[in-house]
């Protein structure tokens, strides 16, 4: 196995690593703790590149990257685009509205068409769980899951973990409370898988209508009371509540939701004094989070965005560099 220990928090530049054994990054569920640490170490090493004046490390020069987004996401798409460009790749963005997918082409046809253009990596976001895996079976290049349905969003979990590690120096033993719409969140699933693999203590906090059956298989503890759920937490991760969930079917109103589950100063006081506040964005201020918290000193939300670029650079570099070594 790898030489670095799972709790290692240091960048591993220069250390000989075993080749990454995956062609695709489809989910955290495919990674073991050593691979997670390896990716985080590689991502940490990428951080300075984005902070220097000439933001370029051209390891992917001459490679073609396609961003194929079936759901809109300015944030994730631009993060992948910038990550690819900083590594010197040629990046093409395909959004569904301008493509033949809107004309009824199946996902598999789309995959075959794109594959024929011989890209080196396709970044895919799709509204259906499992869709990215299906596409990956039909192409000859690497595929990175940028979010599939309510299933996984692995680079988000990696960037969240990197942010936590930067602040807390470790992941093992941390108490992380993930709060909000667990039932519909791929961010929650990927984070629970990653944090579980890294021996962090995970909590989910939500009203019962937003807790899916069997969630105790993924989380250490389940809470329906926000104050109890935040008690002693090192990290408070808020999830976005889609407005359409607060239509009287799952949640009666935004007002009631904010009252019981919105993160404000009073609820946050139950967490550890040095607890950090995270959010995958985009935020609904006044729905799941008080603007004063979102923009306050304990918020690391903009730092998560910066770590996102580093993580995506590391994932691209890892998948494509290791592809190169193979015939």
């Amino acid at each position: 196995m790898a030489t670095s220990s799972p709790a290692s928090g240091t960048g591993g530049q220069g250390v000989a690593r075993p080749a990454f054994r995956h062609r695709h990054l489809l989910g955290i569920s495919q990674l073991n703790q050593y691979e997670i640490v390896d990716l985080l170490d590689r991502a940490e090493a990428m951080i300075p590149i984005s902070r220097q004046e000439r933001k370029i490390l051209p390891t992917l020069s001459g490679k073609t990257q396609i961003n194929l987004f079936f759901e809109n996401s300015t944030r994730t798409q631009s993060s992948f685009e910038i990550a690819g460009k900083r590594l010197g790749a040629q990046v093409t963005n395909m959004s569904v509205k301008t493509s033949s997918v809107a004309k009824g082409e199946t996902l598999i046809d789309t995959a075959a068409t794109l594959n024929a253009m011989r890209p080196d990596v396709i970044i895919v976001r799709h509204g259906a769980s499992g869709a990215v895996e299906l596409l990956s079976q039909k192409v000859g290049c690497s595929v990175i899951n940028a979010g599939d349905g309510a299933h996984e969003h692995p680079t988000q979990a990696l960037l969240d973990a990197l942010t936590m590690r930067q602040h807390k120096g470790r992941l093992a033993g941390l108490t992380v409370a993930i709060c909000g719409d667990i039932a519909n969140s791929r961010v929650a699933r990927s984070n629970l898988l990653l944090l579980g693999a890294m021996q962090a203590r995970t909590r989910v906090v939500a009203p019962r209508t937003l807790l899916p059956r069997g969630i105790e298989m993924l989380a250490t503890e389940v809470f329906t009371d926000m104050r109890q759920g935040l008690e002693g937490a090192d990290v408070v991760m808020m999830l976005r509540l889609q407005h359409e969930r607060a239509n009287g079917r799952m949640i009666p109103s935004v007002r009631e939701y904010y009252h019981f589950y919105g993160l404000d100063e009073e609820k946050l006081s139950f967490a550890k004094p040095d607890a950090i506040v995270m959010h995958p964005g985009p935020m609904n201020r006044g729905v799941e989070i008080d603007p004063a918290i979102a923009d306050g000193p304990r918020s690391v939300i903009t730092e998560q965005v910066e770590m996102g670029v580093a993580v995506r650079m590391a994932v691209l570099d890892t998948l494509l560099a290791d592809r190169e070594a193979q015939p």
Binding site: S129, G130, D148, G149, A150, H151, E152, R186, R189, P212, R213, G214, I215, M217, L218
Partner: peptide, 13 residues
């Protein structure tokens, strides 16, 4: 089927 498997797969049960 609704249950842990659906939840882990991110599929509605």
């Amino acid at each position: 089927n609704e249950g842990a498997l659906a939840t882990i797969s991110g599929l509605k049960g």
